[in-house]
Amino acid sequence: MIKYFVYIIYSKSYDSYYRGYSTQPEKRLNQHNENKGRFTKNKGPWVLVFLQSFSTKREALIRERKIKKYSKSQNIQLIASTKNELI
């Protein structure tokens, strides 16, 4: 069964967060660090700081849409929360 993930990556050099969706978050992180993403290009290195899994693509895309509207402080709160599977 395929899992769907919503992730947040962070660039310390730009003090910037990027939120996205993927079925292969580690591979996607590598793509961001290889400058293959439009927004993340030349802003790395990127570090995975949040990962949440979903059983359906629809759930993951709804969640991604929601967190893309979050402010920086809301991102920080989410990363520190129990919803973060990296903790």
Rank of each mutant, 00 (worst) to 15 (best):
residue 1 M to H: 13
residue 1 M to W: 14
residue 1 M to I: 09
residue 2 I to W: 12
residue 2 I to A: 10
residue 3 K to R: 13
residue 3 K to L: 12
residue 4 Y to N: 12
residue 4 Y to D: 09
residue 5 F to L: 01
residue 5 F to T: 01
residue 5 F to C: 04
residue 6 V to S: 01
residue 6 V to Y: 00
residue 8 I to D: 09
residue 9 I to S: 03
residue 10 Y to A: 00
residue 10 Y to V: 01
residue 11 S to A: 03
residue 11 S to K: 04
residue 11 S to C: 04
residue 13 S to Q: 13
residue 13 S to T: 13
residue 14 Y to M: 14
residue 14 Y to I: 07
residue 15 D to R: 08
residue 15 D to G: 02
residue 16 S to M: 15
residue 17 Y to I: 05
residue 17 Y to T: 05
residue 18 Y to R: 02
residue 18 Y to V: 04
residue 19 R to N: 06
residue 19 R to P: 03
residue 20 G to E: 04
residue 20 G to D: 01
residue 20 G to I: 02
residue 21 Y to M: 00
residue 21 Y to E: 00
residue 21 Y to T: 00
residue 22 S to H: 05
residue 23 T to S: 11
residue 23 T to K: 12
residue 24 Q to W: 13
residue 24 Q to N: 14
residue 25 P to V: 06
residue 26 E to N: 10
residue 26 E to Y: 14
residue 26 E to A: 10
residue 27 K to F: 11
residue 27 K to C: 06
residue 29 L to C: 00
residue 29 L to H: 03
residue 29 L to D: 03
residue 30 N to Y: 14
residue 30 N to I: 11
residue 31 Q to Y: 13
residue 32 H to E: 07
residue 32 H to W: 10
residue 32 H to K: 02
residue 33 N to R: 05
residue 35 N to R: 08
residue 36 K to L: 15
residue 37 G to F: 09
residue 37 G to D: 09
residue 38 R to I: 14
residue 39 F to C: 03
residue 39 F to K: 01
residue 40 T to E: 08
residue 41 K to R: 12
residue 41 K to F: 07
residue 41 K to G: 03
residue 43 K to H: 06
residue 43 K to P: 03
residue 43 K to Y: 08
residue 44 G to W: 08
residue 44 G to I: 01
residue 44 G to K: 04
residue 46 W to T: 02
residue 46 W to Q: 02
residue 47 V to G: 07
residue 47 V to A: 12
residue 48 L to R: 02
residue 48 L to H: 06
residue 49 V to N: 07
residue 49 V to A: 06
residue 50 F to C: 00
residue 51 L to S: 01
residue 51 L to Q: 04
residue 52 Q to C: 02
residue 52 Q to N: 05
residue 54 F to V: 04
residue 54 F to C: 05
residue 54 F to T: 01
residue 54 F to M: 07
residue 55 S to N: 14
residue 56 T to R: 06
residue 57 K to P: 09
residue 58 R to T: 10
residue 58 R to M: 11
residue 60 A to N: 08
residue 61 L to Q: 11
residue 61 L to Y: 09
residue 62 I to Y: 13
residue 62 I to G: 07
residue 63 R to K: 12
residue 63 R to F: 15
residue 64 E to Q: 05
residue 64 E to T: 00
residue 65 R to T: 09
residue 65 R to Q: 12
residue 66 K to A: 11
residue 66 K to F: 15
residue 67 I to F: 08
residue 67 I to K: 00
residue 68 K to C: 05
residue 68 K to W: 05
residue 68 K to D: 07
residue 68 K to S: 08
residue 69 K to V: 03
residue 71 S to M: 10
residue 71 S to K: 10
residue 72 K to I: 11
residue 72 K to Q: 15
residue 72 K to F: 15
residue 73 S to Y: 13
residue 73 S to N: 10
residue 73 S to P: 01
residue 73 S to V: 05
residue 74 Q to R: 10
residue 74 Q to L: 09
residue 74 Q to H: 13
residue 75 N to P: 08
residue 76 I to D: 11
residue 76 I to K: 15
residue 76 I to R: 14
residue 77 Q to D: 12
residue 77 Q to K: 15
residue 78 L to D: 08
residue 81 S to F: 05
residue 81 S to E: 01
residue 82 T to A: 13
residue 83 K to Y: 15
residue 83 K to E: 14
residue 83 K to I: 07
residue 84 N to E: 10
residue 84 N to L: 09
residue 84 N to I: 07
residue 85 E to K: 08
residue 86 L to C: 08
residue 86 L to G: 05
residue 87 I to D: 06
